[in-house]
Design a binder for these strands. Structure first.
Lengths: 335, 335
DNA sequence: CAGCCCGGATCGCTCATTAAA
DNA sequence: CTTTAATGAGCGATCCGGGCT
């Protein structure tokens, strides 16, 4: 608990060693908890560290070990992404990396200049590995990332061949099916769906999963905005006036669906049941009525990505793998 | 444009120097664009750098210069923050720092463990400076940040004495006044306000600015949720049935206000005019009708913070100062 | 011969000093 | 004597080979 007396030059390992009456090498071993150190030496060094408020110089350590203890977190923003999702993912990632005492170097990639900059960071030895979030088809970030000599873990299956990649994904198809089955089980017979952008994997897979169950239910795409979903839902009401169940591929879109239903005077859930996807804590519990939604555990996903990248960094020889996380249904007021 | 032939060991400055037929020191001078270098040497080095795909080793450079070329971006999340705002700020910050070729080390501080970790990063020489976002009263991040020996720039006036601090803030009071004046100018006479959390500076200041103009208009607090604002607005409709203008201290709250007005059957803007605050691009243009709002230029704020921290890093002797950015009114469909 | 510990050498860069044009 | 270039000494850690008990 003691602090360096006057915040002059920071103490070095040499200082710690001197104070503990041992050599630099021994002090170093203690800090890196390598075995062959006597109990006495260990205690002396530990005490000296505490007394001096010593913190190892990261640059010096990096120089010799070639490890930075930092990983890049790269978000593609080639198209405007959902704020909720970004905030949520960043929070989860920051927490998981902090727990592992790894620094997070955040890279948001929108322009090709950003991409070049990211590549420089990634190849320049500034980080040990990378977590990549790039759900959109044809994203130039993906080929760049797969060329890297560093451990890379993708969030969600990227477009293109996934051979040799490390991926942590949710079971979007299964989740879509889950939603559809829930609507069916609750007695709905005229079920429709509001889709998202076609070139976003999760959105496409969720819809596919639902259609597997419902074969060929009517679909309108709501793009990625609440208002787009509102319009899509209005169109569906026109096409299928007697509809009684709606699956929206995201909670954000589901809120637009609810807007449209409210405007059309349909009661939820009495006349129409609605199921969303994401269990977005900033949306689902707050709609009126609260939204039934398929939950994907983003924290688990991010934790899985972090675990995997750390494993790769320790080079535990891990074979490329795709980890698929289950989804669950959270029932609230709209079904 | 050429790439290292085989991605073996990365080339060092020594390699570049050898290839250019000069010494390490000269090569270093070229890279740091110091003056006394001949044209010929400059060109030779530049060419060698390109041919070898050389990138300086950051750790080595940091070790000797004691500069990391990284700054911490610290967000307090002691209370759940608005996703929109977080995403938006992170985007702007990332862009501004990337432009300056400074790495961004993101720290989200929620628990006291996070705080301790952040302090370690901040005092451990991992970064050259910090940008701090901590709007809430009594946030423990603030006293910690002000003790730091590093250049620190605050986003928005922190609670407590601001003497000696660098702050870049918006003119929240002026913005609140602007909103109120606009409502008055558009002929509204029974104006009410929906406030935010009392212990958040911006929310409090915006409300104060409006009340300066309106002296003692009825106020209800909506907390920080859309739904809270809905309830606050419902209450105001009860208290002041003939109200014809509403100022909400954020767009997020304003969307709740619109919900309540719609439910109450009031037409906007015919019966009631509404003005929000933030000009949140994910909210204001998408409400129905689109929301008139006071715009604060978050990008300018963040750019100002980055400029300031860089100035401090160059130690241009800059005296502590509070930079206050103007707000503007963006008129849309609700007034 | 263990088990511990020590003193260099080293990582890749910058900077001050010194030497050459 | 001025301008440009080169040499050498670190920055603060890790790790290797060897010495001590």
């Amino acid at each position: 608990m003691s602090v360096p007396p006057h915040s002059g030059p920071r103490p070095t390992l040499e200082d710690v060693a001197a104070r503990a009456g041992v050599s630099r090498a021994t002090a170093s071993r203690v800090l890196n908890s390598s075995p062959r150190v006597s109990r006495a030496a260990h205690d002396a060094v530990t005490a000296a560290v505490a007394e001096l408020g010593y913190q190892p110089n990261r640059a010096a350590r990096t120089l010799v070990t070639r490890r930075t203890d930092a990983v890049a977190v790269v978000f593609s923003e080639s198209e405007p992404t959902d704020d909720h999702r970004l905030a949520w993912l960043i929070r989860a990632t920051a927490a998981a990396l902090a727990d592992a005492d790894v620094q997070m170097v955040l890279l948001l990639v929108r322009t090709s200049e950003d991409l070049a900059r990211a590549e420089r960071v990634l190849t320049g030895g500034h980080v040990d590995g990378a977590l990549v979030f790039a759900p959109r088809k044809g994203d130039r970030l993906v080929p760049m990332a797969r060329r890297l000599a560093l451990p890379v873990v993708f969030a969600g299956r990227p477009w293109g061949p996934t051979r040799g990649l490390h991926v942590v994904d949710h079971d979007h198809e299964g989740g879509g099916a889950l939603a559809a089955e829930h609507l069916v089980a609750s007695g709905r017979t005229r079920i429709v769906a509001v889709g998202g952008p076609r070139d976003v994997h999760p959105a496409a897979d969720r819809l596919a999963g639902a259609r597997d169950v419902l074969d060929a239910c009517p679909v309108e795409d709501g793009g990625s905005t609440r208002d787009g979903a509102r319009r899509a839902m209005a169109e569906l009401l026109r096409r299928v006036p007697d509809l009684d169940g709606v699956f929206a591929v995201s909670d954000h879109l589901a809120s637009g669906v609810l807007d449209a239903l409210r405007e059309a005077g349909r009661r939820v859930p009495e006349d129409v049941a609605v199921v969303g996807f994401d269990d977005d804590p900033t949306v689902a519990p707050h709609t009126v009525p609260p939204l039934t939604s398929v939950r994907q555990d983003v924290e688990a996903q991010v934790a899985g990505m972090v675990t995997q990248v750390l494993r790769l960094l320790r080079d535990d020889p891990v074979r490329p793998r795709r980890e698929i996380l289950p989804t669950t249904l959270v029932r609230r007021g709209t079904t």
